[in-house]
């Protein structure tokens, strides 16, 4: 008799998470990671218990937003880093700056461990920073968390990005993953004279029947958040837009 038992641990360590929000994108470089972090922060500031899981196995960056970076073991597994009222887990905490070349079936196994070993305890929301595109990670989550899973999809207004994101939205529909909405990043900036400029195109209001729930401005101060360890609200135009998106996610 062959018996699988890892799923028991996944169930146990995720049982008290009320909602899991995947932050997906069609392509890389659309700002998915900083948006994941900012959403987590905004939800936390609204008094909710929130966690942030970096599932971008090959390029984890969420650890960079936090000053505390050591993990601790406990009887049940691994305690996420608790920093700034946010629980965080990223392989970036464990791999220094070395490459993480995990492929094929090993990928599936480390994903399972990321959910079976980390003791999140009770959370209102777990925000998941997904790798770009259609990935094993996406199928893994939708297979394991039918009920509490939903997605936000990040795009830029460019035609190329919109085309790829369209496929992503179709896939999410096919997999019956609930979509909270589309986030359009790098949407516009307001110049000195108050004129709104949209350098990457006009963008859209909806895609495949899903509404755009936020258009985020280009905010040059965002880069400094990591470089100078500034608080996220330092990039105030971006932060104000993110707060509104976070409210929509919380109500979803």
């Amino acid at each position: 008799m062959e018996i699988e038992f890892k799923n028991k641990l996944v169930e146990k360590n995720t049982a008290k998470i009320k909602k899991i929000i995947m932050v997906c994108s069609g392509k890389g470089g659309v700002g998915k990671s900083i948006i994941s972090y900012a959403l987590t922060k905004a939800i936390s500031k609204n008094g909710k218990k929130v966690g942030l899981l970096d599932l971008d196995i090959h390029g984890p960056v969420e650890q960079l937003f936090f000053r505390k970076r050591s993990l601790f073991g406990n009887k049940e597994g691994l305690e996420p880093v608790y920093s700034d009222s946010i629980k965080v887990m990223s392989l970036g905490f464990l791999s220094k700056d070395e490459p993480i070349p995990i492929k094929g079936r090993y990928k599936e196994e480390i994903l399972e461990n990321l959910l079976s070993e980390v003791t999140w305890n009770s959370l209102d929301f777990l925000v998941v920073d997904m790798p770009p595109g259609i990935s094993d990670e996406l199928f893994f989550l939708s297979r394991n968390f039918r009920e509490k899973l939903s997605a936000v999809v990040v795009t830029t207004p460019s035609l190329l990005s919109l085309n790829v994101v369209k496929r992503m939205v179709k896939l999410l529909h096919q997999e019956k993953v609930k979509i909270v909405g589309i986030i359009e990043n790098l949407s516009y900036f307001v110049c000195k004279h108050g004129e709104v400029i949209r350098p990457f195109g006009e963008g859209v209001e909806e895609l495949e029947g899903e509404k755009v729930i936020g258009k985020l401005p280009i905010d040059p101060k965002l880069e400094e958040i990591v470089a100078l360890e500034e608080e996220i609200d330092y990039a105030n135009t971006f932060w104000n837009s993110i707060k509104r998106v976070a409210e929509i996610i919380e109500r979803s």
Binding site: N74, L94, E98, P99, Y106, N113
Partner: peptide, 25 residues
């Protein structure tokens, strides 16, 4: 320096929790 401490005072390598991280190490 990447070892994970636990409440029993043991130090474990990350592969104790994520064996596939051996590809990094």
């Amino acid at each position: 320096d990447s070892k994970i401490k636990d409440e029993y005072g043991t130090d474990d390598l990350p592969i104790h929790y994520f064996p596939e991280l051996i590809f990094t190490m």
